[in-house]
Amino acid sequence: MGKVILEVKNLKTKYVTRFGENVYAVDGVSFKIEEGKSLGIAGESGCGKSTLALSLMGYYFPPLHYMSGDIIIDGKNISGMNPDEVRKTILGTEIAYIPQAAMNALNPTQKIIRFIEDVVHAHDPKADKKVIREIAEKRFAELGLPAKVLDQHAVELSGGMKQRTVIAVSTILNPKVLIADEPSSALDVTSQKMVIKMMRELMDKGYIKAMVFITHELPLLYNVTDDIMVMYAGQIVERGTAKEMVFDPTHPYSHGLMGSILVPEEGTRGHKLTAIPGTPPNLKHPPDGCRFADRCKYAAPECRYYTIPEKEFGDNRMYRCLKSLDELKEVYDHE
């Protein structure tokens, strides 16, 4: 087993709404990523993927609150650190986060080089602008981005170029972990490929050591990440290698998810996609039993009474369902 770069243990975080209600969006998440590996996260819209990503930075501000659990980056536990310290010593160097739709959030009146200065100055307020530009020019050249982009504004860049720029800017300080939330969903395939290639390059060159990739585009996830986790209603319901997850999913929700993959390959048109009617539980009061029970075709009465534990199996795989692997295999085989 390689060196563990990011380890998360039983992380719980919540939103407190303007009415003072708690929304338990990340509810007991654990996983590890080794050096040189990437982890994909998929799951229904609203299941807590972005919240998990945000929580991993250890940088909390209302309405998001840390409750419990550990985030350990390269041996250093960053959970419970105060926000100022996190901003100075963690963000950008230990971990970098590219939020969903980040490319549309760039301040349009600011030149790209200013964003890079901001990132560097947050870490080292005295850094010299000339030095920063040199570093930026070198990195942009390595990643195939034209140097002139540094002096352009976000509005002047195409969607694909903007997204690649955002990634280059966020990783300028060589963070150990890069978290990218839907970095390519708004892009067409040509730009998507470039974004992915660039993220690989960052990894190959050792500028980043591990990556978390969130998307609802499963074929992309399958081709880009080593492992995949599926999230449902604030919890991880299954984890495995990308191949295992796509070709041999065990949890009924991941089974449904993988059954709805759309690709332009012969035969896919003749099969009905797996549709799962219904909606996930309200995260303000998640049920005690299985959170998927209301929508699960295989639910039994006992599924609603027990807290469903994570069950480890195989080579570092995990699923969260009361039924045994054999029982699940049996029902899937008969469909």
């Binding site: 490929k193 290639k197 074929p219 399958y222």
Partner: peptide
């Protein structure tokens, strides 16, 4: 090209032809 460019699951996604330095 459009078809060959999208990631699939029974075929390897080929990134070798992607040139980063364009535009």
């Amino acid at each position: 090209r459009l078809i060959s460019d999208v990631p699939k699951i029974h075929e390897e996604w080929d990134l070798s032809t992607v040139e980063l330095a364009t535009e």
